[in-house]
Amino acid sequence: MEMKVERKGSIEEEKKEKVDLSGMSLDTLPNLSTNVLLITELDISNNNLESIPESLTARLLNVEKLDVHSNQLKSLPNSIGCLSKLKVLNVSGNLIESLPKSIENCRALEELNVNFNKLTRLPDTIGFELTHLQKLSVNSNKLAYLPYSISHMTTLRILDARLNCLRVLPDGLENLINLQILNVSQNFQYLNTLPYSIGLLISLIELDISYNKITILPDSIGCLKNLRKLSVEGNPLVCPSMEVVGQGLDAIKEYLSERMKGNEPGTKRRSWIGKLVRYRTFNGQTVNGAHDQDGFLLSDYRSIDGLASPRFMGLFSPRRLFSPKSYFAR
């Protein structure tokens, strides 16, 4: 067995090391021949590991990237919370049913990949602590809901929650002001509605809601000025009709905008605004006091206990990562 150790010997990097033990058919981890405190990247993916020693994780105090994908892990060690410098964690392709609450102590985390596991829930308070997270991938699990605390992740740019059992999307969705890609497709018979607040995801570029049970798209989607890709196939849509859907994204947005303005027969003018006001998302003041204007002031934008604020900005792209080395090369 050959352990690959890459030393970076510059003075500035102080002999930081990347240890690669991927694809070695390991059942247990060997004793590392290097000083554990020097390791900044550890790749133990594509093995047969059923557990990671608590004692090892507790000593990886300088690790920034940890890849354990494609093993037989049923849980993560509680000592994962000791990794205060961890930025990228990939645990996809395992048998994990729940994440330890201690993962909330990894406050530097920017990318979390838990795809292809057996998760039934995420820690309820995970979003209150992981406020620097930019990419959250939890696809191909058994999640029935996403916790409300996710709305605190105001730096989040990608949320991939397809192939779960989601029934609703979390309250406070509108606070994800940096979200660019939202994928909640293939929740099949479970997800049958979208919140009106989805129209306030001002940075949204891609929205995939395909293969659910959605019959009506919220009119507010017509307000998503940056939206470039909308996937709705596989839903029993009645509004907009399949005729409108067949004309493409611009036609869908125009149709929903007209409904929102009350120009579509049988629609109630700005009914979605009233709902958002009731959610206290904003106060519903019109620009220059004119109720027929298109703009609404966001002066009462709802901050979340002072933590979520439009001042926070932050970046990445979802995919299934099962190759042994390509993931860390990104």
Rank of each mutant, 00 (worst) to 15 (best):
M313V: 08
L207W: 03
L32W: 05
N141E: 09
S102K: 10
V88L: 11
G262Q: 06
P123L: 02
K325P: 00
E13G: 15
F316V: 11
Q186Y: 14
L109S: 06
T40D: 10
H132N: 15
N90T: 03
E97S: 09
L297R: 11
R59Q: 15
L119H: 03
M260F: 14
E6H: 12
S45K: 09
R278M: 11
N263A: 05
H291V: 10
E50M: 13
L119N: 05
L61I: 13
S10D: 15
D124S: 08
T155H: 12
R280L: 08
E174A: 12
V19C: 09
N113P: 00
T120C: 06
Y190K: 03
V184K: 01
E2D: 13
T120N: 13
N288K: 10
K229S: 13
L237N: 02
N46E: 08
P240D: 10
Y148C: 04
T154K: 12
P170V: 03
N283R: 09
V287L: 14
N105V: 04
T154H: 11
E258S: 15
Y211L: 10
G284K: 06
T40E: 07
N178I: 04
P324F: 08
K275Y: 07
A58E: 11
S140H: 08
S151E: 07
A329P: 00
V68W: 02
I80L: 14
F282K: 07
K225Q: 14
L95C: 14
K101E: 15
N288R: 13
E258H: 11
G289W: 07
D219P: 10
Q285S: 15
K213N: 13
K85I: 00
G234P: 02
L159E: 07
V277Y: 02
T131R: 15
H69I: 00
M313C: 12
G222M: 04
L194M: 13
I52F: 08
G266W: 12
I214F: 01
P30R: 09
M153G: 03
H132A: 05
G234C: 04
L227H: 02
